[in-house]
Design a protein around this nucleic acid. Structure first.
Lengths: 345, 345
DNA sequence: TTGAAAGCGGTACCAC
DNA sequence: GTGGTACCGCTTTCAA
């Protein structure tokens, strides 16, 4: 025996329910929610009704109706790398206060997967999107262009960014580290990096290493390529072993990340090699392990959080420019990096 | 001079555009997209039109119309902890093949923030939601109940789960580790943990430590509470220092996580203490650092990925049960943990 | 300051 | 197998 007024089967309350309870129209409820001007008394009644019903506005309906979602799509290669989770935090801090909701995905260093994720996220009509790196499939580029939303590429400074880029030159950062080691008197410098072609930032660091070794006339590069991205702590040990096997007289090792450097140092401990007395080790990224490890690790500090923060700000600026009808000017935003000398090199 | 056919201002193509180009109705396009039965030839024409226009279906419209989104809300305390990012990966692997999209948020170990995020995510009408831990504000519980979607709590086995739980007893796991150390002959066992009241899993481990120390008659507990969650590598050093200051004759230390244990071991290195000869150290979580560190760290291995995976499966089951009209049976799913003896203890 | 009507872009449902 | 129609829940627009 259904009561004559209760027609809807059940389900959560709707805006019309709130309106009825408050004795106003849907529009007034909508205005209260949007923070538009409504008589204080009316507003109070509406708020009370909302509370009483536990009303939660449907974002999908709102997005459909207004033609704008509150999503920002964000793609990083790996969520478990502290690098990228710091970047995500920066993005969150920049965007959340503006009522934007991150739609997060990890590509697992796989460009095909990136493409799938981009497509999937685009279905939700994000206001803008942040990608990591400058390498994307042609299809990804095309679909992004067609979507016509602001795009920021992070962690790199591509020569031809899709739109805006926030990052630094991994090539130059690596060169700076080679110079640092050379200035300390090291001459037989090796480099440990992953074997995968997918980690462009790692490959850029390798390229920088090779270039500077050549520029300084330090002989043949001593490169060990081993393991998959993301490079983790387990990488450094075997890579260091391989390096010492092939070039036993190596006096310094640069690693593609602090994770690898840590593994390398532990391998030295196991072999009874003193760091840096017998062999110096340098990392990249200034991860926490670099400061906690014994010895502490000389590294390149990159402001991962800042990359996220600046990316968020760039996206906001692009959205505002768009709303204001202003020109969407694309640019490259350079993030600083610093060599941090510590005990290991 | 706008052409007479081009009425819409611009914007991305719509389903009606695809339909017109393919010479079919919107419904047929919709069916093609949904994989329903459509004549092969018709389907081909529609697909071609989709390709040609670069059409991307609007998920918000679909969700509104069908009354079901493809979102799964997921809340973890911290994205940068490898524990939780492994869990997220497990969830992704379980849910993505079913076309579900993760809506990810990190609470930063803050229950108020969790409440805000839950509210915010609920606006998107997620099909279900996974939370971390068993502690939530009353408002969070209420709003979840009202939402009437399946809820899974991860990483813990609450006595009164909201709905379903996937986890293990942190109390019992910690007790097991105390027993392990006692069996190895250690008697003056300390415990390092964060000072915050917010990390319930850490506090449960502390509780387990205290209970087992008492049960075994190992004297007064030696507890150092220091630092904020999430506990990172930087925690262990100062905490170890504080412990040795207060109880210099300590012969073994349990840490709330491997991160802390690593920091503690490095502190021992700095002080010239041999691990485990002078002092044993045990961790929790079986993080990568535990296997790479020298000495390798004795720890409690927890299947973080499995928690995510099982949670995803539980959510899928709940959704199916719901669709099938079956009863939504709530339950606790127990995840295994194992003591892994290594060099450090 | 408030309300009524139209419609956002899809899908469910029922005819054909 | 395919098309027409109503409608999901909200915001826009315009009128009162």
């Amino acid at each position: 025996m259904p009561s004559p007024t209760a027609v809807r089967p059940a389900g959560p309350p709707r805006m019309s329910d709130v309106a009825r309870l408050a004795g106003v129209s849907k529009m007034t409820v909508s205005r209260v929610l949007a923070g538009h001007s409504v008589a204080a008394e009316t507003r109070a009644r509406v708020c009370e009704a909302i509370d009483q019903l536990g009303y939660v506005a449907d974002a999908a309906a709102g997005a459909l109706s207004s033609g704008r979602s509150e999503f920002v799509a964000v793609l990083v290669p790996s969520l478990s790398s502290s690098n990228f989770s710091d970047t995500v935090r920066g993005l969150t801090d920049a965007l959340e206060p503006h009522g934007l909701q991150l739609l997060l995905g990890d590509t697992d260093y796989d460009l095909e997967r990136e493409e799938r994720l981009v497509r999937s996220m685009l279905r939700h009509q994000p206001r803008c999107i942040a990608l990591t790196g400058s390498q994307h499939t042609d299809a990804t580029r095309k679909v992004l262009e067609r979507s016509a939303i602001p795009v920021v590429e992070m962690w790199d400074l591509p020569t031809h960014p899709i739109d805006t880029a926030v990052g630094f030159s991994n090539v130059r950062a690596a060169r700076a580290m080679v110079r640092h080691l050379a200035e300390r008197g090291y001459r037989r410098i090796g480099f440990l990096v992953g074997a995968s072609e997918l980690d462009r930032r790692g490959l850029d660091r390798l390229k920088g290493y090779q270039a500077e070794i050549k520029a300084l006339g330090l002989g043949e590069p001593r490169v060990v390529r081993l393991g998959e991205s993301p490079i983790t702590m387990s990488h450094g040990g075997p890579a260091m072993a391989a390096l010492l096997e092939r070039w036993p007289d190596t006096d310094a090792v640069m690693c593609v990340s602090d994770m690898s450097a840590f593994g390398a140092i532990m391998e030295c401990h196991r072999r009874g090699l003193a760091v840096p007395a017998d062999i110096a080790v340098a990392g990249f990224g200034n991860f926490e392990v670099a400061t906690c490890c014994h010895p502490t690790i000389t590294t390149v500090s990159v402001d991962a959080y800042g990359i996220g923060r600046r990316t968020g700000e760039a996206l906001l600026a692009a959205l505002q420019a768009r709303d204001g009808g202003g020109p969407t000017e694309s640019k490259s935003i350079q993030i600083d990096y610093t060599i941090i000398p510590r005990e290991s090199a």
